[in-house]
């Protein structure tokens, strides 16, 4: 119970990152590796500002904005510099490593252990409401009494924030600019013949995507009470895993449905990882390997299943055709006999 709940805490935090990855990977059709860097940038800017005495909410917002800038730079590399999408992301990610170290004053970690963060403020406000007691007594009643989390505030408040960001994303993708952004990923030639500047839209889209990622990083760093220079490694794959798992499990009927699927996908992914790591044969260090395997599986298995289904269908149809032919022959034979 406790393990699942902390997995869900992480899930809602990473959900915002996953929605960011969805915007670049699916909407813009741009596999953007900036994510590994901008996730840390968000955390680094926010923790440094908190340590520097800024309001934690302002600091988190600044982290988000830093991610936006990083994404825009990747977009500029691609559109104005004509660099291939993957390479633009890799270049930006590499550059961001040094930039993040600069932001963090050349130290590999920044701690906010004794500072007020948005999570401590939320927790204080939450506890003042007395909701934890209510929820705890409910779960004690259900028999989970000795396995309760320290606070429910992360799950509920950050969960609500993540859903709000999802709603914001849905709304944006329905505006005139949002529609043009989606078309940029879907049919670039068409939307530029409809007077949309696809360069500008790509830059904006990558900016927004990385703003989501950096917000996620900013909150993750506060949740862990440390920003770590290495905390972004493999983040793009985590995002992809959430997008793919979510889409497969919850469907992609409309934009709002898909972003919800991605949100839930991030939570499911976290729970999967938690269970995988509970199995004794895995070390905590295997996390990235497991993630990669999950993504590979999610990408390959549906294709294999489809091919298999197609094969079965074809054999069936051929058999039916042969049977029909035979029946015809029989008919002909019997008519001949009748004569």
């Amino acid at each position: 119970m406790y393990a699942i709940l902390s997995a869900m805490d992480l899930g809602v935090i990473f959900a915002m990152m996953a929605i960011g990855v969805y915007v670049s990977f699916r909407i813009l059709d741009f596999p953007d590796l900036t994510v590994d860097g901008s996730f840390v940038t968000g955390g680094a800017v926010t923790t440094m500002m908190i340590v520097g005495g800024f309001n934690p909410f302002l600091a988190t917002l600044a982290g988000l904005f830093a991610g936006f800038i990083a994404g825009c730079l990747t977009g500029i590399l691609h559109t104005k510099g004509k660099i291939n999408p993957l390479l633009s992301g890799i270049l930006m990610m590499t550059a961001l490593y040094s930039i993040n170290l600069k932001i963090m004053d050349q130290s590999a970690t920044v701690s906010v252990a004794n500072e007020e963060t948005i999570l401590t403020s939320i927790r204080n406000a939450w506890e003042a409401l007395g909701l934890d007691d209510l929820l705890n007594s409910f779960f004690t009643m259900l028999g989970f009494g000795d396995d309760l989390p320290e606070t429910w505030s992360v799950l509920f408040v950050i969960g609500a924030l993540a859903l709000m960001m999802k709603g914001l994303c849905d709304w944006f993708l329905r505006t005139e600019i949002g529609l043009a952004l989606r078309a940029t990923g879907d049919n670039k030639r068409m939307i530029s013949s409809l007077s949309a500047n696809t360069d500008w839209l790509t830059i904006l889209g990558l900016g927004l995507s990385n703003a989501f990622v950096a917000l996620s990083g900013a909150i993750f760093a506060q949740y862990n009470v440390t920003a770590d220079i290495g905390m972004g490694i493999g983040m793009i794959i985590v995002g992809l895993a959430s997008v793919i798992i979510g889409e497969a499990l919850f469907g992609t009927k409309s934009i709002a449905r898909t972003t919800l699927a991605v949100f839930l996908g991030a939570i499911v992914y976290r729970i999967m990882i938690t269970f995988a790591l509970k199995i004794d044969i895995f070390d905590p260090g295997d996390l990235k390997l497991i993630t990669a395997v999950i993504v590979i599986g999610a990408l390959v298995i549906p294709k294999v299943v489809d091919r298999q289904k197609e094969k079965v269908r074809k054999t069936k149809r051929r058999k039916a055709a042969i049977a029909a032919l035979q029946r015809k022959d029989d008919d002909v034979a019997s008519t001949k006999l009748g004569l």
């Binding site: 944006f172 005139e176 600019i177 949002g178 043009a180 989606r182 078309a183 879907d186 409809l194 949309a196």
Partner: peptide, 25 residues
Amino acid sequence: APSMTIEENLAMAYARNRKRSLRNG
């Protein structure tokens, strides 16, 4: 645009001769 709906495609074409904004499409 194949992955967008008929109405969304029309909305994009409709926005052709003005500045696209954050208005609902």
